[in-house]
Simulated scan of single mutants.
Amino acid sequence: MSKIIFNEIQRKQLEANPNVASVSDRAIQYHAEFKIRAVKENMNGKGPTQIFIENGFDLDVIGVKKATSSLCRWRDTYKTYGEQGLLEERRGRGSTGRPSTKDVSPEKKLEKAEARIKYLEAELELLKKLEELERQAKKRY
């Protein structure tokens, strides 16, 4: 989350930009088309500040760090998921989150259960050893 807090005038200025989807007190949501265009321009050699200025952003309002960090994040997403990664919202309710356990095969469930049993048995053995060491230490004193 940004340390910059936008006032009402700054929010209206940012909302007027065609590349902005929405603005809150601290965050700017950009249109996916802008993100894709910005990543491609950046890969062709343009810097983040130049890209944001050419697309109508006042860096005194949003800050140079926001432009740089946003572009870095978009570039990583683009490399991992391609254009589709920037078109889809992967946060919040629509997010996939952890893999679902509903679609797990019985073999996989058994494998996970056996691994958990093995872990718990090892933990129990460790606790037994600790208790024995504590008993021995009490006898000495």
Rank of each mutant, 00 (worst) to 15 (best):
M1Q: 08
S2E: 11
K3G: 15
I4E: 00
I5G: 05
N7T: 14
I9T: 10
I9Q: 09
Q10F: 07
Q13C: 03
Q13G: 01
Q13I: 09
L14S: 07
L14I: 06
L14W: 09
E15F: 02
E15A: 07
P18C: 06
P18I: 07
N19P: 03
N19Y: 02
N19D: 04
N19V: 02
V20W: 00
V20T: 03
A21P: 00
A21T: 11
S22Y: 10
S22K: 10
V23L: 04
V23F: 02
R26C: 07
R26Q: 03
A27S: 13
A27C: 03
A27M: 08
I28A: 01
Q29F: 04
Y30C: 13
H31I: 00
F34Y: 02
K35P: 03
K35R: 15
R37Q: 05
A38P: 01
A38E: 01
V39S: 01
V39M: 00
K40D: 05
E41F: 03
N42Y: 12
M43L: 15
N44P: 01
N44I: 01
K46A: 10
G47N: 06
G47P: 01
G47C: 06
G47E: 04
Q50C: 06
Q50A: 11
F52A: 00
E54N: 14
E54A: 13
F57N: 00
D60H: 14
D60P: 03
V61S: 05
I62S: 01
G63M: 06
G63T: 09
G63A: 08
V64L: 09
V64Q: 11
T68Y: 01
S69G: 06
S70R: 08
S70Y: 08
L71D: 03
R73F: 15
R75M: 05
R75C: 02
T77K: 02
T77P: 02
T77H: 04
T77W: 05
Y78T: 01
Y78K: 02
G82W: 10
E83F: 00
G85R: 00
L87W: 06
E89V: 11
E89M: 09
R90E: 06
G94C: 06
G94Y: 09
G94I: 14
S95T: 15
S95C: 15
S95K: 14
R98C: 08
S100C: 13
S100D: 14
T101Y: 03
K102I: 06
D103C: 06
V104T: 05
V104L: 14
S105A: 14
S105D: 13
K108G: 01
K108Q: 08
K109Y: 07
L110G: 04
E111V: 13
R116G: 03
K118Y: 12
K118C: 12
Y119W: 11
L120F: 07
A122K: 04
A122D: 05
E123P: 02
L124P: 01
E125V: 10
E125M: 09
E125A: 14
K128N: 09
K128P: 00
K129W: 02
L130G: 10
E131K: 15
E131D: 12
E131A: 13
E131Q: 15
E131L: 11
E131W: 05
L133M: 08
L133E: 14
R135E: 06
Q136D: 15
Q136C: 12
Q136I: 13
R140D: 15
Y141S: 06
Y141H: 05
